[in-house]
Nucleic acid binder design. Structure first.
Lengths: 319, 319
DNA sequence: TTGAAAGCGCTAACAT
DNA sequence: ATGTTAGCGCTTTCAA
């Protein structure tokens, strides 16, 4: 493997001069710099990142740790983060599962974005304690160097449901996500607040799991029930889409018999029949803003205000 | 920052003994090992990955370099790769754009999977030359340590179109992807082979770009044409979905007036109306198999047979 | 069973 | 403008 030593030897200079030249330092004369760079080209030299990172005490890598690679939401956030980091010459490293923990704790990244319910608090806290900035998305966590950016689930859902109540709906159902999901639980709070504020005491509760399949089963269950709600708010779009399919499979018409809404605004919303009304988050922009903050912290070495993503109602046919 | 030195000091042993203990070497006695591990816990010690990687001349990381983070195909391949690597204790590092090149050439990964048309051959070749194994997906590239795994586009498309010809279609169109796309070009070859083998001389050619939007425009164009093909084969599902929407927007019925098929079997195929007949690749399994091969190469230090993914016709309503 | 010391490839302070 | 050298944090050979 070619090292800086080989380059220095071929160019007939010392290692340090080679290093200066390769890092484009003004200290070295134009002539020798050229000679060194030519030697580097000739030997196909590239610096060993591990050695550089060790010496520099920084890697130039930003880690983004997600729950899984599938999923429309992650993709959009990732594309946003990636775009912004690339403009600033930082590398993006996306990982998941146990890899995430390894890369974090072994300090192979200079900063991290956590978008993964399963990654344990203790690891995030420890990484922050070591002096590295971390952004946690959709998660409540406080600690040294920890920044939390979250969707304002309560207000968004509350406003939306209040609007639907004013449109005349009164007989609601809530299709829940997993009970340990931050987003689900806060959306549920907003849902209940809306009913309460409008004096509606009762609603039906359905347990789902954020998946199309889980939503389908609930759809069938509701279709066969004698006491169907006239409006089901679903904690995310995927379960709403499953719900619609379950209802349709039993001949229920939407929104006539049962109105449905979701949360997230994934691509599928536009393709299902009827198209799905939902609360949309601009995930791409969210990613860009988070990356923006990380860059600022890394460059200026000082804390920064967090940006919380903005949501809006995307009115379609399903309610 | 806590280093191995701090742990050694607290445990009252030398650095080397600490290192042995932390790496669970049998050389060190049970009593001292315990003491060292306890010291490590107390100090919240984690090894510095860059230092370890430098010394070991390996990182335990496998890089997967993709064209973009959005896209249903990448997600499934990634999930497959991730699952298998995690079982083997290897870290997955996913990246894109200039980051990919940096991570590769700086040797921050022990092996790589390239699923990105834009990543230049020269960088891949150089990485292979340095002794690292690389899997290139859907790409023709030969070189040291380079393994190429690809969909058998020609046969799949040829068989499919021949089948459709036997079902009675004869008036075909081809909706192309970008002209520099490996997959598009090989699918086109298979398409032409099928027509030729069945004695069909003519077909219409439409230029698309693999996107829904691009497909839509062609759909409108075809709808307004006087000489509509009765069957349009699209080089991927997204353009097929756009095509369907474009045709429908002008009142063309599918498959009655124009039959449509795609390639990939993305989730949306099941949600569009009519549902889309396509050629499906099991991307998740593909990812697992590729990871399997990488693990074998890394462990056994010797070449391995490449696995090419299997495809099959997914018959739905659109043709 | 434990410790001393060299060295992985690089950067940068310091000396020339 | 260029060279010498220490050292980043770790592993491992060699000696005790």
């Amino acid at each position: 493997m070619t090292t800086i030593k080989d380059v220095a030897k071929l160019a007939g200079v010392s290692i340090s001069t080679a290093s200066y030249a390769l890092n484009d330092s003004p200290k070295v004369s134009k002539k020798t710099k050229e000679r060194i760079l030519r030697a580097g080209k000739e030997l196909n030299y590239y610096p060993n990142g591990n050695a550089r990172n060790l010496k520099n005490r920084k890697t130039g890598n930003v880690g983004v740790f997600i729950y899984e690679f599938a999923g429309p939401i992650f993709s959009d956030v990732l594309d946003g983060i990636h775009k912004r980091l690339q403009e600033s010459g930082l590398n993006i490293i996306v990982s998941s599962g146990t890899s995430s923990v390894n890369l974090l704790l072994e300090r192979q990244v200079d900063a991290a974005v956590i978008f993964d319910d399963r990654l344990e608090d203790v690891n995030i806290l420890h990484y922050g304690e070591m002096g590295y900035p971390v952004f946690v998305l959709d998660r409540n966590l406080k600690g040294k160097n920890i920044y939390s950016s979250k969707i304002d689930n309560e207000s968004l859902v509350k406003d939306f449901i209040q609007k639907k109540i004013k449109e005349g709906y009164s007989d609601f159902g809530y299709l829940s996500g997993p009970l340990d999901s931050y987003n689900n639980n806060h959306r549920f709070i907003g849902f209940k607040q809306a009913l309460e504020s409008e004096g509606i005491k009762d609603f039906q509760y359905f347990q789902g799991n954020f998946t199309i399949h889980g939503g389908f089963d609930v759809g069938v269950e509701i279709a066969e029930s004698k006491d169907r709600p006239s409006f089901v708010f679903c904690a995310n779009d995927e379960s709403a889409i499953g719900l619609i399919q379950g209802l349709k499979s039993k001949g229920i018409s939407i929104p006539g018999d049962v109105a449905v809404a979701g949360f997230d605004n994934i691509t599928l919303c536009d393709y299902i029949d009827p198209t799905l009304t939902t609360i949309g988050i601009d995930h791409y922009s969210w990613g860009k803003r988070v990356a923006e903050s990380i860059i600022a912290i890394l460059k200026k070495k000082k804390p920064v205000d967090v940006y919380n993503p903005i949501g809006s109602i995307i009115q379609r046919e399903s309610c």
